[in-house]
């Protein structure tokens, strides 16, 4: 799984460069002070489109990577499912869309990303249901792994914080906003970000509890 570590190396550096190129949107009077930093900014501004493509591809790989890394763990039946990769990607994408909705000042952009977020949240919910269906139709160890969330110790944390507060309620709020109802603008974004965080947190913890029986 070293390819994920290399991906992180690429995406971290390029993401920092991207932020640096856009720093004047938040701090209009920003000055790089040294000449070589200014030269670097000009250089990267020239290749901004290429940088964007590199980031797009590596961002998708990074989003899938966590899930695929965990699904490669034979010993943990809860993680050992191929749905985990797409699920982590969907959760990451919805968090990204929510972050854009939170930080954007352009109304049109906010509405576009609210719509995108809504689609991704629906996909995520579908994938979660799909994953549990897969577990329940599988072997005893997988059934016991799913039981951690269906009556086991993680039931409440998962269904309340991840599914209700992280997916369904922000989804409904997004829908209300698109229909023209007035809701606190930051609320769905914050809820989605919290939901994505809790999803990863709970899944990493619960996975370590699930095990093969012998």
């Amino acid at each position: 799984m070293s390819w994920g570590a290399w991906t992180l190396l690429v995406i971290t550096v390029s993401a920092f460069i991207w932020c640096a190129l856009h720093i004047r949107e938040f701090f209009p009077n920003w000055d790089w002070k040294y000449k070589w930093l200014k030269d670097l900014e000009i250089f990267f501004n020239r290749y901004k489109k290429q940088l964007a493509w590199v980031m797009l591809i590596f961002a998708i790989i990074t989003g899938v990577y966590t899930g695929i890394l965990l699904s490669a763990f034979n010993a943990r039946p809860l993680w050992n499912t191929s749905v985990l990769g797409p699920l982590f990607l969907a959760s990451g994408l919805s968090a990204g869309a929510a972050a854009i909705v939170l930080s954007s000042k352009d109304k049109k952009e906010r509405i576009l990303f609210t719509k995108i977020d809504l689609v991704i949240l629906a996909t995520e919910l579908f994938l979660i249901v799909h994953m549990f269906m897969g577990f329940m139709a599988s072997t005893q160890v997988q059934i016991e792994a799913a039981q951690l969330f269906l009556g086991g110790p993680y039931t409440m944390a998962f269904w309340i914080f991840v599914v209700m507060l992280g997916i369904i309620i922000p989804g409904v709020l997004d829908l209300m906003e698109l229909r023209g109802k007035h809701i606190p603008a930051a609320l769905p974004g914050i809820l989605v970000l919290m939901g994505s965080f809790f999803f990863r947190f709970i899944f990493v913890f619960a996975g370590q509890v699930s095990r093969w029986l012998y």
Binding site: M1, S2, G4, A5, L69, A72, F73, N74, A75
Partner: peptide
């Protein structure tokens, strides 16, 4: 070996 497959550094 899953441990070899999962190792991020080789």
């Amino acid at each position: 070996a899953p441990c070899v497959r999962c190792c991020p550094t080789g």
